[in-house]
Write a protein that binds this DNA or RNA. Structure first.
Length: 258
DNA sequence: CGGCATGTTTCGCC
DNA sequence: AGGCGAAACATGCC
């Protein structure tokens, strides 16, 4: 489930850990950097996010978490997001990839749980390859990032080196709101389209965040599965399903113009 | 059983 | 050289 919105929700959960001293860490070294052991004995000092990456600052190394498709975070035994669309509903301890105990508590302060093991936990991660964060990106910045891009707008927006944080659901939602077909080359968007795209990013993403995350848009998972009529008020189109960049893409050809 | 899934990386081709 | 699309990865669910 993780796109930038879930990463932001978990970042806020993790704020509860600031000030705690890490007693012990256990991890699966197939997905976690062995250097993670160095966080034992350090104190958690802050939690940041860039795109889909959550960064936990300690008095030692920075812990960088990428969630893959099915990763999630459990803080003090509870998770803010329990409806795991496209993942497992269960929280099986066998899928814990990192467990952190702190301040003498028997309940882990932090668990990174990931059935499919597509997530990664790094220490002192290098984020230089990421574009600017999608939440709150400015118009000039967006225009500059899309200039000259020949790939489909949807594929370009999902490229983390162009803009960081957008995944399949958020991109479909934003393009739907902006009235832009996902297939158009990103570099050939008009000035007006780029403006609508930027407005959609800075309005729809925070709205989805307040509503609960990537699955809380107009094109939520149930509507994606049902397909059917375009949910936009006054639009007479029907939703269409195609594949772009290997991902299932839902859009309305009636009001999302190429 | 077959197909699908909110992601990232790698490989081959322009 | 740099950008792009397809495939691979790993596992649960419907």
């Amino acid at each position: 489930m993780p796109e930038c919105l879930e990463a932001e929700i978990w970042r806020r959960d993790l704020l509860a850990l600031i000030g705690r001293r890490i007693d012990r860490v256990e991890f699966d070294d197939r997905v976690a950097d062995p250097a993670l052991a160095a966080v034992e004995g350090t104190t958690i000092e802050g939690v940041r996010r860039h795109g889909k990456v959550v960064l936990v600052d300690t008095s030692g190394p920075v812990i960088g978490v990428r969630f893959g498709m099915t990763g999630r975070v459990v803080v003090d035994g509870a998770s803010s997001i329990d409806a795991l669309a496209y993942s497992s509903r269960r929280d099986d301890p066998a899928w814990d990839r990192v467990v952190v105990w702190a301040d003498g508590s028997e309940t882990p302060a932090l668990r990174m749980n990931d059935p499919r093991r597509l997530g990664r936990i790094e220490t002192d991660p290098d984020l230089r390859g990421l574009g600017p964060d999608a939440l709150g990106i400015g118009l000039d910045e967006l225009r500059a990032r899309l200039r000259g891009r020949t790939a489909a707008t949807k594929a370009t927006l999902m490229n983390q080196s162009v803009v960081a944080g957008l995944g399949n659901l958020c991109v479909d939602e934003v393009l739907f709101a902006a009235g832009i077909a996902p297939t158009v080359a990103a570099g050939s968007l008009s000035a007006a389209e780029t403006r609508r795209l930027q407005r959609a990013l800075v309005t729809r993403l925070p709205a989805m965040l307040r509503a609960g995350g990537s699955t809380h848009g107009v094109l939520d998972p149930s509507r994606r599965a049902e397909r059917g009529r375009c949910p936009r008020r006054g639009c007479v189109g029907a939703l269409r399903v195609i594949r772009i960049g290997g991902r299932t893409t839902v859009y309305c050809p009636e009001h999302q113009l190429a």
